[in-house]
Amino acid sequence: MTAMAQPQTTPGPWSLTTRVIVYSAIGAALYAVFNWISFAIQIPGAESVSVRPHYGLLTFFGFAFGPVVGFLTGFVGNVVGDQLTGWGAFTSPHWSLANGLAGMITGLFPIWMASRMTSVGSKALTAAVAGVVATVIGFLVIFLGLVLTPELDFNTILTTEYIPVVIANSIAAAIVTPILVLAWEPISAQMGR
């Protein structure tokens, strides 16, 4: 008797499979832990200008595992991370949303660009570009701060929040995402489920 393992119907990029749930949970937990560690060893206040390797983790999870994982890693990771540092899970919902959107947008690139990513090198490059573009777009959401903190004005958010954060996060995305893609690629190829 011979039974070829049937080629399973691949679930679409938006379904909440066990795999998506576990990767999202791990992504979110890692994001929160990295965030916590930079919180635990840093001087308070220097956050927005310091290096943020955890941000590159978020774009990597989106890039490697799709938009849903990207969104949940960013959104839940930021909610839980804010809770962990004491900032409060719901204190800055727009920031959580921005992180989620950035992860999600990064996750759309491999779907759009699948045909272009022929080598590991081009994949890493796409990852860097995707991370930066997703950051610039996703973080526009933080202008919701105008509603949530009525005292702030547009210029303040632009100069003290949007621009510095987008710069710091873009750098992290551009550097860290490809490093992780290059590290993960050979291993995921080996595991081959």
């Binding site: 576990v22 990767y23 791990i26 890692l30 990295f34 290096v51 390797p53 955890h54 590159g56 983790l57 990597f60 750098i171 992290a172 550097i175 860290v176 490093i179 992780l180 590290a183 993960w184 291993i187 995921s188 595991m191």
Partner: peptide
């Protein structure tokens, strides 16, 4: 950031293989 690779790469990749 690049200098931090020895920290975030093993933790990330390790947690993914553990996943």
């Amino acid at each position: 950031l690049r200098r931090l690779a020895p920290l975030f790469v093993p933790v990330t990749v390790g947690s993914l293989t553990g996943a």
